[in-house]
Simulated assay, not measured.
Amino acid sequence: MTFSGTARPDLLAIAGRYAADPDRWPVRPRFDPVDRWYARIAERPDHEAWLLTWLPGQETELHDHGGSAGAFVVLSGALVEETVAGGESRGAVLVAGAGRRFGTHHIHRIVNRGGDPAISVHVYAPALRSMTRYHLDARGGLRVAEVARAGVAW
């Protein structure tokens, strides 16, 4: 789906609605001691929504969303969103109730640096088809590590 000529949905508001109504989720949150756990909880013509859980220390790599815009809301615990600008990593702490929206070219990583488990809801439009993972080089530049495809890598 493309959004040219039409209003883009407010993905942060949509994420907030999913976060506020866990009785409608098709799955219950689970925690995996090895890696963050995730499950798609909705797929609509204009967006998809994912439920993620994070034990202390669990994180993503630096990644983009393959041209999809997105937003996420922290339901419990706290997460740090790190972005890279000018070769430097910058972090913002998001506690329960906080959220963040981002555009189609956003690169970030999310990490649970706290001592408590965290739960978050993420919404993307259009639905995720790929995600590119990045590494920082010695000069602070981003280099592609992997391009993961939906249905193949997750």
Rank of each mutant, 00 (worst) to 15 (best):
S89A: 12
S89P: 03
R90E: 06
R90Y: 14
R90N: 10
A92G: 14
A92F: 02
A92Y: 03
V93R: 14
V93T: 13
V95W: 00
A96H: 01
A96K: 14
A96T: 02
G97C: 01
G97D: 10
G97M: 00
A98C: 11
A98Q: 11
A98Y: 01
A98P: 00
A98V: 04
G99Y: 00
R101C: 01
R101G: 14
R101N: 01
F102S: 09
G103M: 06
G103S: 15
G103K: 14
G103H: 11
G103P: 15
T104A: 13
H105Y: 07
H105N: 11
H105K: 09
I107W: 06
H108T: 06
H108R: 15
H108Q: 12
V111Y: 08
V111W: 04
V111Q: 05
N112V: 14
R113L: 13
G114P: 03
G114A: 08
G114W: 02
G114N: 08
G114M: 03
G115R: 11
G115F: 05
P117Q: 00
P117E: 09
P117N: 09
A118P: 02
A118E: 07
I119L: 13
I119M: 09
I119D: 03
S120L: 13
S120H: 04
S120M: 07
V121T: 01
V121K: 05
H122N: 04
Y124T: 01
Y124A: 04
Y124W: 10
Y124V: 07
P126L: 15
P126A: 13
A127W: 00
A127C: 06
R129T: 03
R129H: 05
S130G: 06
S130W: 00
S130Q: 12
S130R: 12
S130E: 08
M131I: 02
R133E: 11
R133G: 06
R133S: 13
R133Y: 15
Y134K: 06
L136Y: 13
L136W: 11
D137K: 05
A138T: 06
A138K: 06
A138N: 05
R139Y: 00
R139V: 07
G141Y: 04
G141A: 10
G141I: 00
L142I: 03
R143H: 08
R143L: 11
R143W: 06
V144H: 01
V144G: 02
A145P: 02
A145M: 05
A145T: 08
E146C: 10
V147K: 09
V147R: 15
A148H: 15
A148R: 15
A148T: 07
R149N: 03
A150V: 10
A150Y: 00
